[in-house]
Amino acid sequence: MSASVGRAVLRAAPWPTLLGGCVAAAALFGIAAALRHGALAFPLSLLGLGLCGATAAYVLDEASAEVEDATPTGRRARVAWRLPIALLPFAVGAAAVLMLDDPGGAAGWDRLVPVAAASVACGLGVASALRRSGRLAPGDLASAIAFGLVFLAVAFEPLDAWVSLAPLESPSYPLATALAWALVLLSCAAVLAACERDPGRPANRKETV
């Protein structure tokens, strides 16, 4: 796919929604920073990270995908052009938790950077799975699902018996936590790769003579 077509694919991204989501997440991080020494800073940060993932869920929205699929622009190539946009919500989330981090403080906020990455990956993964099911612009639904998944996973810690997903106050970053987030990232990448095949192209094409 030529660079000019790629730039057109980039221009067609839902920029107002993406930028609005980033601004909303930044606003939440701003409130968290204002209350950083209170008990509310952590849940506010989690909401901000959830919003970063929710914003990333809009990156793949293509209302006219049915038409575009019929043109010589592969779905994977279009997704490849769109994916760098997801760095924007990730950058907002990662920068915010790094700025919240106080090197002398008890809580290591920088440990939430993997949560920011996983949140964005989760948004993309859910969106691509929904796209595979025929929704061309699944951002609205995918964002709600991704936000709920990330927020519930970190705020309620359902896997607390095995692994803490946001170990802010442990002396060192636990290996189990790193493995858990790496697993989430890999799973989302696998879902993205599997679901963004060009429609109509069989997975294993057998050559016949």
Binding site: G20, Y58, G139, D140
Partner: peptide
């Protein structure tokens, strides 16, 4: 009517 309004 903007996308993401319910979540926001």
């Amino acid at each position: 009517r903007f996308p993401g309004a319910p979540l926001l």
